[in-house]
Each structure stands twice: as C-alpha cells, then as structure tokens.
Amino acid sequence: MRIPLFKRFVIACLNILFPPLAVLLICGPNEDLLFNCLMFLLAVIPSHVHGFYISLTYFNRKRKVRNGMYPGKPKHLIWSDKVNNGGASRRETERLKQQTENGKLGRMVSRRTASTTIKNGREPTRVEDWDDGYREDAISPSTSRMRSGRVGRSNTRERYYENQDHYR
C-alpha cells in the first residue's frame, strides 16, 4: 500500500512550521525527538534540516521495503528503528537482508550498463572480431553516439581502418 500523498504533505508542512512535531509523528518519543528539540532550541535551521532528513529517509526506506528491497544500513544521526527499517519490523528487515546477500533478489543494473550490452547478451564487438566487412551485430554509429554521449565520429569501422593505416 502506498503512503498517501496527503501524509507526506502534512509532514512537510509540519517540518516547515515546527520540526519537532514532525519528528514526533514519524519516530515517536525517542532520541531523535530529543536531538531535534535541542537543535530547535539552539538554532532553528539545523532542526529543519534534521527533520527533513528524517522524513525523506523514512519515506525512501518505506518505499524500498514495500518493493521487497533491503532498506540499508542505519543512517547517521537517526536512532529510530522505525525510520532506519522503513517502518518494517527487525525480523522483516533481517529477512530482506538475507535475501539480498543470498542473491535471491535481482541486482539493479544501471542504465549505462544495461544500454551498452547488445540484445544477444554480449558486450559490444571487439575490433579483433571483425573480418573485412562490417558485422551486423556491431553497434551502429547513431546508437553508439547516443550510448556513449560523445560527440564526433562514432563509426567504429572507420576508426578501425584509420588505426590500421599507421601500422602498414
């Protein structure tokens, strides 16, 4: 079940008006509330920063737990188990951690890594693989320019033959 947008909006407004109240609603009465109250009494702006830090961490970790991912190690300056575990119990967090360590959950692949592999699962062709002609499964000039983000010549076949000229 998704966290209602209204709840996030209320927490954000409370963070702006009175950060200790927002921290109390998220964490409950614990060390985080004491730390935020102390910061609010000494200097108001750090209290706002700490309140937003707690709320953003909580909502991010709650989303991870909802998607079946391990929320991660405890964050600095957050002592609440509810925030560090994303609202999940310790048992649930340990189960997610074990699944992640055992490799049952698939790793997230970055866009760059996913875009550089060819549809047949191999890395882009190497220059040594080419014969006299252009291989069909090699990267085309337009897609290699898009994938690498470089501007300029990207036709790998031309670069291969240019590099061979100075060896002859």
Results as ranks from 00 to 15, higher is better:
residue 106 G to T: 12
residue 106 G to K: 15
residue 106 G to Q: 15
residue 107 R to Y: 00
residue 107 R to K: 11
residue 107 R to L: 00
residue 108 M to W: 00
residue 108 M to A: 00
residue 109 V to Q: 01
residue 109 V to Y: 00
residue 109 V to M: 02
residue 110 S to T: 15
residue 110 S to H: 10
residue 110 S to C: 13
residue 110 S to K: 13
residue 110 S to L: 14
residue 110 S to I: 09
residue 111 R to K: 15
residue 111 R to D: 04
residue 111 R to I: 12
residue 111 R to L: 12
residue 111 R to N: 09
residue 111 R to G: 02
residue 112 R to W: 09
residue 112 R to L: 13
residue 112 R to F: 06
residue 112 R to A: 07
residue 112 R to G: 02
residue 112 R to E: 06
residue 113 T to E: 13
residue 113 T to L: 13
residue 114 A to F: 12
residue 114 A to V: 08
residue 114 A to R: 15
residue 114 A to C: 11
residue 114 A to W: 10
residue 114 A to I: 09
residue 115 S to L: 14
residue 115 S to E: 14
residue 115 S to I: 09
residue 116 T to I: 14
residue 116 T to H: 06
residue 117 T to A: 05
residue 117 T to M: 15
residue 117 T to Y: 10
residue 117 T to V: 15
residue 117 T to Q: 14
residue 117 T to I: 15
residue 117 T to F: 12
residue 118 I to F: 02
residue 118 I to C: 06
residue 118 I to A: 04
residue 118 I to N: 05
residue 118 I to P: 00
residue 118 I to G: 01
residue 119 K to W: 08
residue 120 N to A: 05
residue 120 N to S: 13
residue 120 N to E: 07
residue 120 N to W: 04
residue 121 G to W: 03
residue 121 G to E: 03
residue 121 G to K: 09
residue 121 G to F: 06
residue 121 G to L: 10
residue 122 R to S: 05
residue 122 R to A: 04
residue 122 R to I: 06
residue 122 R to F: 05
residue 123 E to A: 15
residue 123 E to K: 15
residue 123 E to V: 12
residue 123 E to Y: 09
residue 124 P to H: 03
residue 124 P to K: 07
residue 124 P to N: 08
residue 124 P to M: 08
residue 124 P to I: 04
residue 124 P to T: 05
residue 124 P to R: 05
residue 124 P to S: 03
residue 125 T to L: 10
residue 125 T to A: 03
residue 125 T to V: 11
residue 125 T to G: 01
residue 125 T to M: 10
residue 126 R to L: 08
residue 126 R to M: 07
residue 126 R to H: 04
residue 127 V to K: 05
residue 127 V to L: 07
residue 127 V to I: 08
residue 127 V to Y: 02
residue 127 V to H: 01
residue 127 V to F: 03
residue 128 E to W: 06
residue 128 E to S: 12
residue 129 D to Q: 14
residue 129 D to L: 10
residue 129 D to P: 02
residue 130 W to G: 00
residue 130 W to T: 00
residue 130 W to A: 01
residue 130 W to F: 03
residue 130 W to H: 01
residue 131 D to F: 02
residue 131 D to Y: 02
residue 131 D to P: 02
residue 131 D to S: 04
residue 131 D to I: 06
residue 132 D to N: 11
residue 132 D to K: 13
residue 132 D to V: 11
residue 132 D to Y: 07
residue 132 D to Q: 09
residue 133 G to T: 12
residue 133 G to H: 10
residue 133 G to L: 11
residue 133 G to D: 11
residue 133 G to A: 08
residue 133 G to E: 11
residue 134 Y to S: 03
residue 134 Y to M: 04
residue 134 Y to N: 02
residue 134 Y to E: 01
residue 134 Y to T: 05
residue 134 Y to V: 07
residue 135 R to V: 05
residue 135 R to K: 11
residue 135 R to M: 10
